[in-house]
Design a protein around this nucleic acid. Sequence first.
DNA 1: CTGCTTGCAAAAACTTTGCATTAAG
DNA 2: CTTAATGCAAAGTTTTTGCAAGCAG
Lengths: 140, 140
Amino acid sequence: MLKKEGFRLTGTRRSLVKAILSLEGHWTIQDTATKLKKDLPSIGIATVYRTVQLLARLGLLSESRIGGGAARYEVADAHHHDHLTCNQCGQIFEFENDQIERLQSLVAKQLGFKLADHRMELYGDCTRKKCPNLGRGRKS
Amino acid sequence: MLKKEGFRLTGTRRSLVKAILSLEGHWTIQDTATKLKKDLPSIGIATVYRTVQLLARLGLLSESRIGGGAARYEVADAHHHDHLTCNQCGQIFEFENDQIERLQSLVAKQLGFKLADHRMELYGDCTRKKCPNLGRGRKS
DNA sequence: CTGCTTGCAAAAACTTTGCATTAAG
DNA sequence: CTTAATGCAAAGTTTTTGCAAGCAG
């Protein structure tokens, strides 16, 4: 982990990273803190926020806001991917589609932008029972 | 406004809708409440939350979480569109791209889903000055 | 009348900030 | 030594919830 971008590699950060790597999928700050308390009971929630956000800015973690609650993070893989969430069970699937990526860059360019990043979240229904409520009705 | 989906058309809701229609672009709950207080000083913030969320579930409003702060809403147009945000000035541009939409449906279908909705937000740089900080570093 | 709606206040959920102390380099 | 990093508590934001009173149907 090349943290030597001008930042200090502290014991707390080592533990933080270890906790993160032990988590699966799309975790929240609280998930991390809970896990971390076992190794490092003295950890402060503020530090977790600050460190995770730092790692995200450095590109080592990626943030998403699936589901509308707390921000969720995941280790930034080499290959970028997007998310598809089931409106019923809430399960999150990952996928990647180069063609869409290319079109996104193209659209941005046409609008006079240099595309730096993007977030794409699809919502759908598992091919099973019908939606109990009105559906999470997410549109944009 | 066909609110007769089983819900009551109250005076408060009429005023709410009027306030919403007078707002431009991507407003927050607070924006709405502020505007609304002029016509209806007694309005409670909880009611604005509840009503806006109801309208969103009915598909009359669409929600997005551009910028990471409070949720933002806008009137759901007939034509769906997505957003492109400038990392520097924060300005939001809208666009639509049928080809991307088709690919999204296709991807969902391939994963065994019926696509109900989606949210896509692009982040880029205006072709001007360089980014002051590390860039909002949004990735997903 | 009946029960969906509303306003208010309190609480919950999530995140940021200030500051004295600690420890990395 | 110097100063970034940490822990803690307090404050800030955003959203939700409980309830009695108010209205639409």
